[in-house]
Design a protein around this nucleic acid. Structure first.
Lengths: 160, 160
DNA sequence: AGAAACTGCTTGTAAACTGCAAGCGGAATG
DNA sequence: CATTCCGCTTGCAGTTTACAAGCAGTTTCT
């Protein structure tokens, strides 16, 4: 792993700076898609199969994702986020807020980003706790930010 | 401009998701490098000339950067950040903090990111005000976050 | 038991992007 | 009026991305 420089922003770009890594992490994080099939079948942007396979491999190598066997389906692999990936929640929040403000984001898909930005650091922390439950086996927290975001999306999608 | 989806995170990735865009913006933002020559000559990562030229062109097309003539040197172009780019400060803060925590960032180069993260939202806001002064002609604010970050870097670089 | 569908990929091919080195035209400098 | 500065462009090789097709092992259906 030869790095271009020791600057933290550069290192982050070297790990995340391509057209798909953050999108795949978004789908695992906010969509709770956990297997290859779920990630491919629900991909809003239509990720190609070889790119998805390659990205999952790279994310594992970089330490952002781990693979676990599914007890009910022997051929299915369940992908879990690591603490390193869960720590990207604040980055996702800021990126989403920026996209909503400056890019032509659709109202329905903006709903989650807006809710998350308005929820502030407390909501981000609660979301990270929920992700630690879902991916790392931590105890289940009382609040489900995932459910709140889904509700925000549904409410936005209903309005014509 | 055909976009893959209207998701704000996807749109942000489509604009910023490559190996150089955020690095160039970082250099303009934190290094206050304003011309092609400064950006190329001071590039920590050694950006190639054609990539730098292409990235500046794309950043202008995306509305993140504008070009202005230098009154003293007719052949020099001064690149200014737009409000859209200045609004990326919180993203940079989070990305830097993440890089410091999870990637092998060098102590000297981490100093700015750490100072900025510890400064909280107030410091980010003051930095954005300073950037609006430097790039958009807004009145000069009392606080210079750029000077504080430089001091933090110098202090970290002195320690052996 | 056999057929069909599911699951997680791999392979082939073409196009686009990246990275390196060299060069170039106009402007300022001495 | 030669030299250096400045902002690029060009050529080329290698890598990455994108699209479409296919494939082996597993489970489900009939």
């Amino acid at each position: 792993m030869d790095r271009r420089s020791g600057c933290p922003i550069n290192l982050s770009v070297e790990v995340l700076g391509d057209r798909w890594s953050l999108v795949v992490l978004r789908d695992i994080m906010f969509g709770n898609f956990r297997s290859y099939g779920e990630l491919h079948g629900n991909s809003l942007e239509g990720i190609a199969t070889n790119i998805l396979a390659n990205r999952l491999k790279r994310l594992m190598e970089e330490g952002l994702v781990t693979a676990a066997a599914d007890p009910t389906h022997k051929q299915r692999t369940i992908y879990n986020l690591t603490e390193m990936a869960i720590a990207l929640v604040p980055v996702m929040v800021q990126l989403g807020a920026w996209g909503v403000q400056f890019l032509p984001a659709s109202p329905e898909l903006s709903a989650r980003a807006i809710a998350l930005a308005e929820g502030g650091p407390q909501m981000a922390d609660d979301f990270m706790a929920e992700l630690r439950h879902l991916h790392l086996g931590d105890p289940k927290p009382g609040r489900s930010v995932l459910a709140e975001l889904e509700a925000a999306y549904q409410a936005a999608a209903q309005k014509p």
